[in-house]
Amino acid sequence: MKQLTNPRELRGLAILSQPETIIQISKNEWDVRSQSKDAYYRVTRTFVKGRDAQHLHDWTCTCPDHTTRNIVCKHIYSVQFSLKLKGDVELEATEKAIERAEPKITCPYCKSENIVSRGKRKNMKGDVQVYGCKNCQRRFTRELGFNRMKHTPEAITLTLDLYFKGLSDRKIVDHLKQFHKVSVVHTTVIRWIKKYLALLGKYAEKNKVNVGNIWHSDETTVFIKKEDEKRYYQWIWNVMDAKTRYLLACQVTEERYVKDAQKALKQAKSVTNVRPDAIVTDGLQAYNTAIKAEFYDPHAFIQNPHIRLKDFETKPNNNILERLNGTFRERTKVVRSFDNSIGAIEFAAGMQTYYNYIRPHQGIGGLTPAEMAGIQIDLTGNRWMTMIGLAIK
């Protein structure tokens, strides 16, 4: 793997990761703390007219490295990096218009879109819309993911919502009976959850999402039932975009090595249209090699986007991912443990869908991360029903 060619860039990132090392004096002046003594150096940016678009500023610093060698020093790099990363974690969401796209109805037999309405028929769930295909002359009803299910889609999606909000399967049974006159046993609730977790897990993040340039990565534990062991840990790796709060990756692994960290980073890279300027992580050593392997670019402004935190107070910090891990624990403390790793994988995929599409996020003005990321799905009304219908298609 190719290493950083300029060690001053790496030292500049190290300066940026320390608290109170860069103080902005004016629009074009900064004081940067020395790493070797108790002093500050003045970094100045000067606008230069008549140059091409990539060289609009001259940078100077009062440190000996710049004044004697006339090169870009680590203090200048640290200011440039801080400007590049400005407005990441604490960025307030702005209102944005979300396009609504209603999925087209197609014939399940010939795939034609030449469809007309043929009235309605009644069943135990109520009125069901019937369609007719003008090409093959067949009639059909839309497959929304609830065909041949005894209970209504509303009862099933309510079960899913209560499950991800932290209720146990027996409490869900009690709620359905008390308030909705739906009598089921707890094994039915478990069967519904497994069925639709598997379905939503197959709804891969195929849409390219519009995200910001600051990502966060962290891992949390989940318990798996294993013979002859009371507590067997596996790891859930989460990668989140700071601007939209979109959960880019949610992967389950048995270990915390480099190959495990790369698994989550590869998934995050596959669903985005940008290369991040920074990936904020804790002190886990596996991230050092994994992020370089996936994102190192010698031609980029920031060649290695990894920012490794030393404490929770330094900005950018990893607090938004710690909050996400808390949301996961709200659910896993009720489950206590999963039957096997497949159950944990299905749970992680379901949580990713829930977090991105279902759960409103107060940090982005009550929108869902999917809305902030510009995914064209009508998420008004029963979001669970919308997502299940899309997964079925």
Rank of each mutant, 00 (worst) to 15 (best):
L4R: 08
P7V: 14
E9V: 05
E9Y: 05
S17D: 09
Q18T: 08
P19D: 06
K27L: 12
S36E: 08
S36F: 11
G50P: 06
Q54T: 14
H57I: 02
P64R: 12
T68E: 06
N70Q: 12
V72M: 13
K74L: 08
H75D: 03
I76M: 14
L83R: 15
L83S: 12
E102Y: 13
K104H: 10
I105W: 01
I115L: 10
I115A: 10
D127F: 10
C136L: 12
R138M: 09
F140D: 08
F146M: 05
K150R: 15
H151W: 06
P153E: 01
E154H: 12
T159W: 01
L162V: 00
R170A: 13
R170H: 07
K177R: 14
T187K: 11
K194S: 11
Y196E: 01
K206N: 13
K208I: 04
H216C: 15
T220Y: 02
K225N: 07
D228L: 11
W235D: 02
W237H: 14
V239P: 00
E255C: 11
E255H: 14
A264M: 06
S270A: 15
V274L: 08
P276Q: 10
P276L: 13
Y287T: 04
N288T: 05
A290M: 00
K310F: 10
F312Q: 06
E313R: 13
N318I: 12
N319C: 12
L321W: 00
R323T: 03
G326D: 04
F328E: 02
R329H: 09
R331Y: 00
T332D: 02
A344L: 08
M351K: 05
H361M: 02
Q362R: 13
I364M: 11
T368F: 03
M372W: 00
M387C: 13
